[in-house]
């Protein structure tokens, strides 16, 4: 059976979730690989939540918020924009491909863009393969040294 990625998407209530909703009400089709979690603001998405999702079997995590300047809480997405690149760096240093975490801005009117984004991201993660954090692995078998 071919690999089907599972993507957890954190969408902010005010823009991105409404954008995804627009895609739904407009009957636009997008891959069913994405599990949407609605949060009040993309700034609420702690790096620890992203790690939790990756640990619990997500192959990738997508975080969507309002465009810069459009945040319902004025500065929420500015914090997200600063935080997520650091998270990606931390993942990279741990040996997890940083492409597994992605931050995008999707506004309430961008239903079509949301569909495009999901299609593109699912294709990218399908190429990347399953998340190495899931699946049992014995740590003690190969002790690499520096």
């Amino acid at each position: 059976m071919s690999f089907e990625p599972r993507i957890v998407a954190f969408l902010c209530n005010w823009c991105s979730y409404t954008g995804a909703d627009l895609a739904g009400t407009a009957r636009m089709r997008y891959p069913p690989n994405v599990v949407i979690i609605r949060v009040m603001c993309s700034g609420r998405v702690s790096p620890l939540l992203v790690m939790s999702a990756l640990k619990q079997g997500a192959d990738a995590v997508l975080i969507c918020g309002c465009h810069i300047g459009d945040c319902h809480y004025t500065t929420g997405n500015w914090q997200t924009e600063k935080r997520i690149p650091l998270l990606r760096k931390a993942l990279e240093m741990l040996g997890i491909d940083p492409r597994r975490v992605r931050l995008e801005w999707v506004s309430a009117s961008e239903g079509a863009r949301f569909v495009e984004l999901i299609e593109e991201y699912v294709a990218e993660i399908r190429q990347l393969g399953p998340n190495p954090l899931t699946g049992a692995q014995d740590a003690r078998t190969s002790p690499p040294s520096l």
């Binding site: 997890i96 190495p132 690499p144």
Partner: peptide, 19 residues
Amino acid sequence: KLQRLPLEERLAFWRYQLS
């Protein structure tokens, strides 16, 4: 040295170290 390791080896390194 850690930065020069490829991703998979880095993950194996931390898997071992943190275990």
